[in-house]
Simulated scan of single mutants.
Amino acid sequence: MQLNDYLRQLQSQNKSVHTVSNYQRDIEAFLGFYLSGELLSETDVSENSFLTAVEYQNSLVKNFSEWQSIDSETIRAFLAFRVQNGISARTLARQLSAIRSFYDYLLFENQVIKNPAKGLKAPKQPQPLPKSLDVDLTQRLLEQPLETWQDVRDQAIFELLYSAGLRVSECAELDLSPGLDEMQSGWVRVLGKGMKERLAPVGSKALQAIQMWLQIRDQHAAAIEQAVFVNQRGGRLSVRSIQNQLDKRTLQAGLPTKMSPHRLRHACATHVLESSGDLRAVQEILGHANLSTTQIYTKLDLQHLAQVYDQAHPRAKKKNS
């Protein structure tokens, strides 16, 4: 059987047992859907048959070889059927990938003349809402004692991520010039996605933290290093190092949550939006090319509003059961 041959090939490619099992289950689920109509019209299946309907369908699946008869519309119908049954977009994407991969194998083996799954797109993955951080927890993170030169450096980094809403890569790649040329005016110049340059705002706390760091930076940076933030060897601090330092600060602050530099960027956006309601301003701060990218923060803002309303409005409070 072609399916068994395909699964053996996956095993020979050192695919994990979990992957092979998933692909087998996905392809059999699709074939079961395809054969369901044939099963209902099959005259050999009757109440007196020693095979149940389920057993009979399983036998059809195991012995099926007419893969050439399946077209793109059948695969679309299968995906639509799975959507109606509440299957997640992530699972559907994996199932379509399994079907496409199997047909690639059949093409290679000259058992079909085309791949009906080629060109089909899985349902769009739902965009998860970014996890923000409330103001009190943000302040606790940023108000820890500074005992080493790395603490002073990290304070400048974290304040900048939160104040300017920078991506962590933008922070790591920030150079003394032109990055800090306009810092005294309250701006840093960063190079964002698509090599687009923008000015990002620097609040008073971030400005103070950066100035403290610059006072000692030259003691730790290599002579020719232009990076604002440097490591113990005097070279540019990496994105991974920033994440590691933030992990340490999170533990130091006793925060009841996992932190990431991206969450500080999200916190900047949500806190500005909650206070101002100005979505265009948030778009400019974050450096989003399209307003639609920024609009996800309106969902966060509405979630926050709903929580406050439920807790504060006398006619919204739920009665104790």
Rank of each mutant, 00 (worst) to 15 (best):
E197A: 10
R265D: 05
G194W: 09
G203L: 04
T250V: 08
M183C: 12
R263S: 06
A269I: 02
S185V: 09
N244W: 01
A222P: 00
A222F: 01
R240L: 00
V228W: 08
Q211N: 15
A222N: 08
L199F: 11
G235Y: 11
Q215D: 09
G203S: 12
R189H: 11
I210S: 06
I216P: 01
T250N: 15
Q226G: 07
R189L: 14
A209I: 04
H262Q: 03
S177M: 12
E274H: 11
L180A: 12
D247A: 06
S275R: 14
G179P: 04
M183Y: 04
R249P: 01
H266I: 00
D247E: 11
V188F: 07
Q232Y: 15
W187Y: 13
S204M: 15
Q232E: 14
W187N: 13
L214S: 05
L273E: 11
A222Y: 06
H220C: 04
P178C: 07
E182N: 13
E182C: 06
S260W: 07
V228T: 11
L246H: 09
K205I: 06
R233G: 01
M212F: 02
V188R: 13
A223T: 03
R240W: 04
A222M: 12
M259L: 14
S238K: 03
S177E: 14
S204P: 01
I216M: 04
V239P: 02
L207K: 14
G234S: 10
L180I: 12
K258W: 00
T257M: 10
K196N: 09
P261F: 09
M259W: 04
R240K: 08
N244G: 00
M212V: 00
K205D: 09
V272H: 06
I224H: 10
L251Y: 00
G192L: 07
S204D: 12
A200N: 08
V228H: 09
V190K: 08
Q243S: 07
A223Q: 13
Q252P: 01
M183P: 02
W213K: 02
W213R: 02
D218V: 04
W213E: 06
R249H: 03
D181Q: 14
S276Q: 09
P261M: 11
P178I: 10
L180C: 07
S185M: 11
A227C: 05
L191S: 04
A227S: 09
V188M: 13
V202D: 03
T257Q: 13
K258P: 00
R236K: 15
K196A: 07
P178R: 12
M195D: 14
H262A: 08
L191I: 10
V228D: 11
L255I: 13
A269T: 01
D247Q: 15
D218A: 05
L246M: 14
G203I: 08
G192I: 12
L264V: 12
G203T: 02
H262M: 03
D181N: 15
G235E: 13
